[in-house]
């Protein structure tokens, strides 16, 4: 099998972007999306995304992401 960037996979990535990534411990940086700090409104909104994805909301993302990825170090 080959790896994909399907719309279903985008659900996982949403969570990854919110939870992972470079963390900076510095006075000049506000790190909002730490799970402990993320706004209640944002958290509530994102929680609804799994449902959105079932109805194809992420198809555009997938198409665009795949196109963008096309020449990024592909095999």
């Amino acid at each position: 099998m080959r790896p994909t960037r399907s719309d279903d996979a985008a659900v996982d990535l949403v969570d990854v972007i919110l939870r992972e990534g470079v963390v900076v411990e510095a006075d000049v940086v506000i790190r909002v999306a730490d799970v402990a700090l993320v706004g209640v409104r944002l958290r509530a909104a994102v929680a609804g995304m799994a449902t959105m994805t079932r109805y194809g909301y992420f198809e555009e993302w997938d198409t665009e992401g795949t196109r963008n990825r096309g020449s990024t170090g592909g095999t």
Binding site: V24, V29, I30, R31, V32, N68
Partner: peptide
């Protein structure tokens, strides 16, 4: 694509 593997920040990280 342009610069090679990036170091991605977590969403909503802001430098004041």
């Amino acid at each position: 694509q342009v610069f090679g593997t990036p170091l991605p920040f977590r969403f909503d990280t802001v430098l004041t």
